[in-house]
């Protein structure tokens, strides 16, 4: 295998991982920019989404309908969480409360999955088997499909945000909550929409990752950390920043272990974040 083939294989794998990270980070950044909270249980929504697919597939539903249903269920759960737990109330410190609530939620959701499904690793049906040859390098088909689904989700999100009234209202609310309120945009509705979309994206990421890798109750922790690194790297609240940050992290995870070592790859993202923050304290595409 030539060095070029190795590069190609590593790059495609990195891009596939990167897109999964992007899905996670998009939800996080959407929630952060519109609601102003850090939803630390987002990794658990990712895990819950994957387990919902596992459950639905076990009930006889096909993989793709199960993924769509899981996204819908997580969106509804997001709305319930927003209305029941995260909605700002007078006299309540929003940021601190959200951190405490989402940390508790993390423990509750993980424990619930352990109780219901057990600690044992579960599997989802494969997205695809085998690989395709691109310039002599074998590229796993399931990763190509994961990239396809993730790109599709991002395009749909982009169209939603740019072409629909609700999407435009969400952008306005994210840019200036008070100003948009004076223009008649209900911030609570925007928060609800952000949680619904964010949770649906996390469910999609969880389902894709679950089909490529495996399911276990603690699977949400690492993507959550990656998601946080990405939004810091890309700029808090910036959707293009989340996209670029996710792809950078994915490429680091895909390429560095092949040409250096997995240990270097685990340090890589932190080094990049430190360097970026040194020169651009608001992240790559962050703004005031």
């Amino acid at each position: 295998m030539s060095s070029l083939d190795l590069w190609l294989q590593a790059t495609v794998n990195g891009i596939a991982l990167g897109w999964l990270y992007v899905l996670m980070a998009l939800g996080l950044t959407l929630i952060l920019s519109i609601m102003g909270i850090l939803q630390l249980a987002h990794g658990e929504i990712y895990m819950l989404g994957a387990y919902a697919v596992h459950y639905l597939v076990g009930r006889g539903l096909g993989l793709y309908p199960a993924i769509a249903t899981s996204m819908f269920i997580m969106a509804v759960l997001g709305i319930i969480l927003e209305r029941g737990l995260f909605r700002p109330r007078s006299g309540r410190e929003v940021v601190l409360c959200s951190i405490v609530i989402s940390t508790g939620l993390t423990l509750i959701l993980t424990s619930a999955i352990v109780v219901i499904f057990g600690l044992y690793t579960k599997s989802l049906p494969l997205l695809a088997t085998g690989s395709v040859e691109i310039f002599g390098a074998a590229v796993p088909k399931d990763r190509i499909l994961a990239i396809g689904f993730s790109v599709l989700a991002l395009v749909l999100l982009y169209l939603f945000l740019k072409k629909t009234r609700l999407g435009l209202a969400m952008i306005a609310s994210a840019q200036n909550r008070e100003g948009s309120f004076l223009k008649g945009i209900n911030p609570n509705r925007m928060s609800m929409a952000a949680m619904a979309i964010g949770c649906a994206l996390a469910a999609l990421a969880g389902a894709l990752a679950g089909a490529i890798l495996q399911l276990q109750p603690y699977m949400g922790a690492l993507p959550m950390i990656k998601g946080l690194v990405i939004i810091v790297l890309g700029g808090l609240g910036s959707i293009p920043g989340a996209l670029i940050g996710g792809l950078i992290l994915g490429l680091i995870d895909g390429i560095v272990p092949v040409f250096f070592s997995p240990a270097v790859a685990s340090v890589g993202p932190l080094v990049v974040v430190i360097l970026v923050l040194l020169f651009r304290p608001k992240g790559l595409l962050g703004h005031d």
Binding site: D5, Q9, I212, G254, P262
Partner: peptide, 21 residues
């Protein structure tokens, strides 16, 4: 190839091992 405890994605490791045919 050595991989750290907690690794879940083995494609990079196997890419490298596979390169040795």
């Amino acid at each position: 190839e050595k991989w750290p405890w907690g690794t879940t994605d083995f494609v990079p490791i196997m890419t490298k091992l596979n390169a040795a045919k």
